[in-house]
């Protein structure tokens, strides 16, 4: 898939929409930044490569005017979930899908080059070549991709109006999705508690995870800050932080589309997606439900039936 093809599509849809949300080069060569395009001149600056990590669909509910958005397969699940929950007006959104074989975790790349400022970045078949003042380093994208790409089931967007490239089939076994969770659960209860306590201790309550989360719909009325109800104080103890992260996770039960944005944006590198993934694995187990896959679905926690069609609670 070439950036040229993407630009063609952007130019085609621009006249019908207020904005096309895509990506452009950021403050350095490794950081790509979201780009709100309004004009054909803007479209010229659009880019697409494995550094286009942000889930742009997350901006949609806050926009009133008709908007086109560029989505990868994983990002498209956000839109499907929005459709399920009535959070967007589908007729007000133009979806430009991009088949994607995997993006790059900027954090992993920076670590691989000892956090040296990056002078240049090049791509060559499934590899990323990073130039720093210390020389060039070639990394296989598979080695520096976010965890979500390793088990990606939806390389091609689930919904789209335009597809910039040929559809790709997933090559990753479906059972692999929750393998990391199963692995983690082999640890003892104490080990897991200590692990999370240690991780959440680093939390500075900046709420980047919450604000980047496409499904965090409470936003400005979040329980983390309200005084009525007053469930969480502003104190910095790991209990308070854990409480916030647990509420965040539970709020996403059967809604988390596993885009990984919460974890990607965390300036303290806390694996905040783990809790959410665990709950999703339970939802899959109990209700045979995967969020953000079928626009006709209803999230299981949105409904209550005496005889839940797919519930397997008796097997627990």
């Amino acid at each position: 898939m070439s950036t040229e093809k993407l630009k063609e599509i952007i130019l085609k849809v621009l006249p019908d929409v207020d904005t096309v949300i895509g990506w452009q080069e950021g403050f350095d060569k490794i950081h790509i930044t979201p780009f709100f395009m309004k004009s054909p001149e803007d479209a010229e600056k659009a880019v697409w490569n494995s550094l286009c990590v942000q889930n742009l669909a997350a901006y949609l509910p806050s926009l009133k005017k008709k908007t086109a958005v560029i989505v990868k397969g994983c990002d498209s699940r956000t839109i499907v979930q929005y459709m399920q929950e009535g959070l967007i007006d589908r007729s007000n959104v133009v979806i430009i899908g991009i088949p994607c074989t995997g993006v790059v975790s900027v954090k992993k790349v920076l670590k691989a080059v000892d956090y040296q400022p990056i002078e240049d970045v090049k791509f060559s078949d499934e590899k990323i070549i990073i130039k720093t003042s210390k020389g060039e380093k070639t990394l296989a994208i598979a080695d520096v991709c976010p965890d979500k790409c390793k088990t990606c089931q939806y390389p091609t967007p689930i919904v789209y109006d335009h597809l910039a490239g040929d559809p790709i089939e997933s090559t990753k076994p479906a059972e692999s999705v929750y393998e990391d969770i199963k692995e983690f659960e082999k640890k003892s209860l104490e080990e897991r508690r200590d692990y999370f306590k240690n991780e959440f201790d680093k939390c500075i309550r900046c709420y980047a995870c919450r604000n980047a989360c496409p499904m965090c719909v409470c936003q400005d009325s979040c329980i983390a800050e309200t005084r009525d109800p007053h469930w969480i104080t502003q104190k910095l103890s790991s209990e308070e932080k854990m409480m916030f992260h647990m509420i965040h996770a539970v709020h996403l039960a059967g809604r988390c589309v596993e885009c990984g944005e919460c974890e990607r944006v965390c300036p303290m590198d806390i694996p905040v997606a783990k809790l959410k993934k665990k709950i999703n694995s339970e939802m899959k187990e109990l209700f045979d439900y995967v969020p953000g896959v079928n626009p006709e679905d209803k999230p299981p926690m949105y409904t209550f039936n005496v005889e839940e069609a797919k519930i397997k609670e008796h097997k627990l």
């Binding site: 930044t33 979201p34 780009f35 709100f36 309550r205 900046c206 980047a208 604000n211 300036p267």
Partner: peptide
């Protein structure tokens, strides 16, 4: 134009 992409979190100010 310059801050539509901001997600209104507190990372910048806290750091």
């Amino acid at each position: 134009k310059v801050v539509s992409k901001c997600i209104s979190c507190g990372a910048c100010t806290y750091l």
